[in-house]
């Protein structure tokens, strides 16, 4: 799951040579802007067939690949 999410984030948001680790700060580090969280949320919901409540899709919960994985795992059956 980590690799899938990391690959998506790189493809979607990284437009230069920025190195990305599973702990890189995505929102607070300026890699993903708050507008673009929408497509990330939709990607996760479609990919893992889950529904993440809006109040759980916070900038903090989306701030690294590892944090996103933890969030997704809460909703995967």
């Amino acid at each position: 799951m980590q690799e899938v999410i990391k690959a998506y984030v790189i493809k979607e948001y990284v437009e230069d040579d920025t190195e990305l680790t599973n702990d890189s700060p995505l929102i607070s580090g300026g890699i993903v802007d708050s507008f673009s969280m929408v497509s990330l949320k939709r990607f996760l919901e479609n990919k893992y067939n889950i529904s993440i409540p809006d109040d759980k899709a916070t900038p903090e919960a989306f701030d690294s690949v590892n944090k996103i994985c933890a969030l997704v795992k809460e909703y995967v059956k």
Binding site: F35, V38, S39, R42
Partner: peptide, 21 residues
Amino acid sequence: AMHDTFKHSDMEHLEEKLQLH
């Protein structure tokens, strides 16, 4: 309304977003 973005002038990316939404 929900908001999403596509990479500057990248038509392939725009098409992906149109499919996604």
